[in-house]
Amino acid sequence: MSSEAEILVRLTVNGAVVARHVPVRRSLADFLRHDLGLTGTHVGCEHGVCGACTIRLDGEIVRSCLLLAAQADGAAVETVEGLTESGEIAALQQAFLARNALQCGFCTPGMLVTAADLLRTTTTPTREEIRGAISANYCRCTGYHAIVDAIETAATSRTGDR
């Protein structure tokens, strides 16, 4: 068995430049969680189905379990921690809280990243459009109804601000 191959990766995470030597086989999700301690990104399936690990890579949402950390070299990554700090998802977070659109909370970071992406491209999505967008993210607790309500509320409040 060959020895553990490593690589130096340099990237921007939530606006800060980081550089680490990591095993080449380490996923971006594991890198964020365990090398950087950004445990808000969750790993629910490690095969790209559940959406709990959804993050933003160079502005587009991706599954961080389906990327190697090595592939993010030179990229800009945003996680739920960064989106929280910047205030970008504050309206969504407020709506999720007020509507109890989360129970165990494990899917929530990925759900928020997906919802924020929807709201960037669709000003006032219909409930069906919201359901379509979040169908990429598994939630086992809520049954989705409250999440759809919360995203709808956040979209409405946002357009109201304009």
Partner: peptide, 23 residues
């Protein structure tokens, strides 16, 4: 009353503490 769950405030911010998050 429909009180907001205090713990949920942490969870929506990505500050959950699940077992694998505990170093």
């Amino acid at each position: 009353r429909s009180r907001v769950r205090p713990r949920a405030r942490r969870l929506v911010a990505g500050r959950g503490r699940y077992t694998d998050d505990i170093a």
